[in-house]
């Protein structure tokens, strides 16, 4: 990032991979989006070719785009309903296992993606790859374990939490959740309170699982405000009216 060579990473990538990658650069961070089918070839080239030499895979994580941009508190129009909007919204975290959203028949855009952070120690550069899964009911991404063996656990984590299946992974087991866990907890349609709770039952003299008894409750509604660009705030802090 700091010692940028003569041509930028984005230009080098575009010259080498052409249309395979959709490249954007924001705040000096280069992001390349690519199809799952191209991932293995691109990853191998990024690791081996002297112009790139991304010797380290720093991170891989899943992401679920369901409900992206969804709000519970409308800031555009005035509504007649009052305070209860704050506690009776519909977004993430407010439903339980029985009431979880079931989707609206495949009308959503693609939900799941795997996001990969690469680091080149030789060139001191970073690159982010994003691979969307074509099929929401069976999210599939080729495994990178043969390119960077260190990705093994990161892929297991993404499988565990999001249900993304990494094709060719040698040992795709759950890693963070409990033995025998059901569901993929970081999906946006998985309740924040979970589905089962565990306790010791003195009658049966063993640990038992039961449906959760806690009520889902989120205190702060989710809002998107247009002053998010902080223009007004910048103007306010610039004119220093408090000091006068």
């Amino acid at each position: 990032m700091t010692n940028t060579p003569k041509t930028s990473l984005a230009e080098q990538l575009a010259a080498r991979f052409g249309d395979t990658l959709a490249i954007t650069t924001v705040r000096n961070e280069t992001v390349a989006e690519l199809a799952a089918a191209d991932l293995l070839a691109v990853a191998t080239a990024l690791r081996d070719e002297p112009a790139f030499r991304f010797s380290e895979l720093i991170d891989l994580c899943g992401i679920d785009y369901l409900g992206y941009g969804q709000v519970e508190w409308d800031t555009e129009t005035i509504s007649g309903t009052g305070f209860s909007r704050g506690v009776e919204g519909e977004a993430q975290g407010r439903f339980d296992w029985a009431g979880r959203p079931r989707g609206n028949g495949g009308n959503e855009p693609r939900r799941f993606a795997a996001v990969i952070q690469l680091l080149s120690i030789e060139h001191n550069r970073r690159l982010r790859l994003r691979v969307f899964c074509e099929d929401d009911s069976l999210p599939l991404v080729p495994s990178l374990t043969l390119v960077w063996p260190g990705v093994n656990w990161f892929e297991r984590e993404a499988f565990d939490l999001y249900g993304i299946i990494f094709d060719g992974h040698p040992d795709l087991r759950r890693i963070l959740t409990d033995y025998g866990f059901v569901g993929h907890p970081f999906r946006k349609d998985f309740p924040l309170v979970g589905n089962v709770e565990v306790r010791y039952d003195p009658v049966q003299q063993r640990v038992i699982y039961e449906p959760v008894s806690i009520e889902p409750r989120v205190l702060v509604p989710r809002t998107i405000r247009d002053d998010a660009d902080l223009m007004q705030a910048r103007a306010e802090s610039a004119d220093n009216w408090r000091e006068n």
């Binding site: 720093i58 991170d59 994580c61 992401i63 679920d64 992206y68 941009g69 709000v71 996001v115 952070q117 260190g150 093994n152 656990w153 990161f154 984590e157 702060v220 989710r222 809002t223 998107i224 405000r225 998010a228």
Partner: peptide, 29 residues
């Protein structure tokens, strides 16, 4: 390297936070 991958959709809550923990990568080896 402890990293934070943050995705925001413009709301007052993060859309996705991923925390890259060094120990996780180390232990996998």
């Amino acid at each position: 390297e402890f990293g934070c991958y943050l995705v925001s959709d413009g709301a007052n809550k993060p859309f996705r936070v991923h925390l890259r923990a060094p120990g996780f990568a180390h232990l996998s080896s």
